[in-house]
Each structure stands twice: as C-alpha cells, then as structure tokens.
Design a protein around this nucleic acid. Structure first.
Lengths: 204, 204
DNA sequence: CCGCACCTTGACCCAGCGGTCAAGTAGCGT
DNA sequence: ACGCTACTTGACCGCTGGGTCAAGGTGCGG
C-alpha cells in the first residue's frame, strides 16, 4: 500500500496511526475494531483503507514508525559525540526518556511480541537496534575503552537491562526518569567494564 | 459457573484447559476460537459451555490453575525446611524448574498481561506470590538472617530477577535450568544480604 | 428397571468484524 | 474554468466466532 500522498494525506495517515495506537494501548489490538479507529477520528471507514491495506498493516507500520522515532531520538541525543562509551550512555538515557514519553507503545510492542504475525517486523527492529549498539561497542573495544568480549552478547545484555528497568520503574512506579536512567547507565557501564565472561547471568 | 462434577467431569474440564493452553500458546488467545478448542478434543461445542460460561472464564481459570500448580510445586520443594533463607532459595529453584517444564504458560501469561480483562486475576496471583515470599523474608529478618529492610521491595526484586532470567535464559536459550537457577539464587541471596537501600535498581 | 443428574450433540443464531466499492467532494496545476 | 488526482463517504457483503438450546445418551443409586 504505497500511495502518492499530499501533505494533508500524510497528516491523515499519522492521525490514524496515533489514534489506533491510543486505542490499542487502552483496549488491546484485537478488541479494537477498524470501525472504532475511524470513529475516533470521525471519518468514514474508506479513509482507513485508503491509507492501509489491512488492520495488520497498520500495526506493522505503527511498530516501524515508533521504532524509527525512538532511533531518531537516540541519534539526536548522541549527536557527534566522539567517545563510543559516552555514546552508549547517551543512547540509554535517550531510550528511557523516549519510553517514558511513549508508555503506550510499550503495551503494544508487548502484545505484538505474542503474535507470530508481527514477529518479522519486531525481529527487524530488534536487529537494527542491536546493530546500532554493536557498532558503538566494537569501536569502544578497538579503542581499548572496554575489555574485548563478544559485542553481540554485550548488546543483548544492555537491551535486557533497559527492557526490564522500563517495565518495572517507568511503567509500574512513578520513579523519575533520571534516577532510573542513572541506575541503568551505571549498571550497564559497570557490566561493560567487567565483561560477562564469568557466568550465565548478566547480573553476576 | 460452579457445577457438580463427577470424576469424569473433572477430567474433561482439565482436558479442555490443557487443550486450550496449547492452542493459546501456539496461536494466541484471540486467534484461537472455541470451535478450535473443542475440535482439538473431538467433542461438540456444548461441552465447552457445560464447563465454562465463556472463553474469558476459561483463560481466567487457566491462569488460576497454573498459578496453583506453580505454588504447589514451590510448597512441595520447600517442605518443612526450617531456615527461611533456604526456603527462599528452594522456592526460586522450584519456580524456575516449573517454568522450564511449562514454557507454554509464559506466553499465555504475557498475553494476559496485555489485556485489562485479566488484570484482576493476574493481580491476585501476583499478590499471593508476593505474600508467600514476604512471609519468608519477614521471618528471616526477625531471625536476624538478613538485614532489616522493606520485605515487599525485596520480594518485588526477587520476582523481577526470576521473571527476567526466565524470559532470557529458559525461553530464548537452551541454558540448563540448574545453571540459571544457580545464577538466580546467588544473585538474590547476594541482593538480600546487601539490601537495596542504595538505589532504585535491584542490580545496583 | 426406573428416575434423575450429569454429560454430550451439533444445528442454529446473530452481532459485529474486516474489507469493498460506486459515487461523490476538494483542491491543485494549468 | 476544466480536469485530474487525491481523498472521503457510508451502505453493503460474506463470514467468522461466541454463545444457545432442545433433544438425546450415559451411568448410578434405589
């Protein structure tokens, strides 16, 4: 469903995605009907199918676009920082900040992860995210800023920490972002310095 | 939907729950129809509604019964162990073992967590689980086996660790249970000894 | 062997869903 | 002013899926 869109068209599309995101977050994907989505915008049903070929496609696009938004935020935060370790720190902080401002997406992503249909998009997103982290890690290793160990494993560990801390502290409590970010950063940088060689657990 | 059930009746009910659990785990809750469930048992649709008043109720019962099963496993593992700290350790090991044997339930619980409908059951389950842990913790504190700090926070931290390790190592890798359990136990007991006073993160 | 309670059947009901489309409107480029 | 393309409408459709029910089977206590 690639169409030529005018400015107005692009806005409508965004409205639909935002509207759907809110409803999906509130009631879940399946219980939200296409009728609900267009009603919430006060438009006819045809509008939906002008911009998306199916409800599934909308969610896929939502997942892609939210990931893009997060990634842009990270890049903006990192800027042209030369130190790879500091880049990782800035990335972690930006990520937590973003999730804090977009709590809704967390529920949606969590749902998408339980449905095979969206596995490809999520896998893709994850690979991109890991790739970003891995690049910084490799550079940090080359420059001797952190000990030499498998960057992929390190990246997984970092993402695991962010995931868990987001879940627990950003969604379930009112903990201020900065404190959670401090904890995440200090733990991750500590983990990087120590390496992960001595055990199965990223926390050992 | 409370009915007088014969032995045979109870078995049917269990069959339905098990069958549904498998289908839910494979395809998800919404995409699995009641027709699918009864078909997988080769019985008529009426059977389903003899035992459950709705598809929702079935999932609620599934969540309750799986939690009961886990709890029984924990209690069996703990036995009459007098040392509260050791009881916590045995509980952690039993939990990981149980999740290892019932991977399917993890996906289902994860889905249920994304649907408001099941929030009450899940909350209830969680409160019971926390209560169990808290009891041991309080006793351990009274006996001076671990430093005095908020048992509820400690319990949350322990459950968080179990949750995360289950997700990462029991579901996504083939790590043997015993090694994951060792890591979980050593981290949790370490955490208990150290307390959580110095930061927001359970890993700091 | 009766009677009763438990269990099973499967055709049926129908609300509501995802998705279509012929017809119409809006606005831009020329 | 015209025409073209982007956009919008909302009635409509086929069908799926949760849920019902009258009728029939099964097995056990008396």
């Amino acid at each position: 469903m690639r169409r030529k869109l005018t400015q107005r068209g692009r806005e409508r599309r965004d409205q639909l995605i935002r509207c759907a995101a809110q409803l999906f977050a509130e009631r879940g994907y399946h219980p939200t009907s296409v009728a609900d989505i267009v009603e919430c915008l006060g438009v006819g049903k045809g509008v939906f199918y002008w911009y998306f070929s199916s409800k599934e496609e909308l969610l896929s696009e939502l997942l892609k676009s939210s990931h893009l938004s997060l990634r842009r935020r990270q890049q903006a935060a990192i800027g042209d920082e030369p130190d790879p370790v500091r880049r990782i720190e800035l990335g972690i902080r930006a990520t937590l900040q973003w999730f804090h401002e977009h709590r809704d997406y967390f529920a949606i992503i969590q749902f998408a992860a339980t449905d095979e249909t969206f596995a490809p998009v999520l896998r893709r997103n994850r690979e991109v995210a890991l790739g970003d982290t891995i690049r910084h890690l490799k550079e940090a290793i080359v420059e001797g800023r952190i000990p030499d160990s498998d960057p992929e494993t390190l990246a997984h560990a970092i993402h695991g920490v962010i995931d868990q801390l987001t879940r627990r502290y950003l969604l379930e409590t009112n903990e201020p972002v900065s404190r959670v970010a401090d904890a995440a950063v200090s733990f991750c940088l500590g983990g990087l310095a120590g390496g992960l060689d001595e055990g199965v657990s990223p926390v050992s």
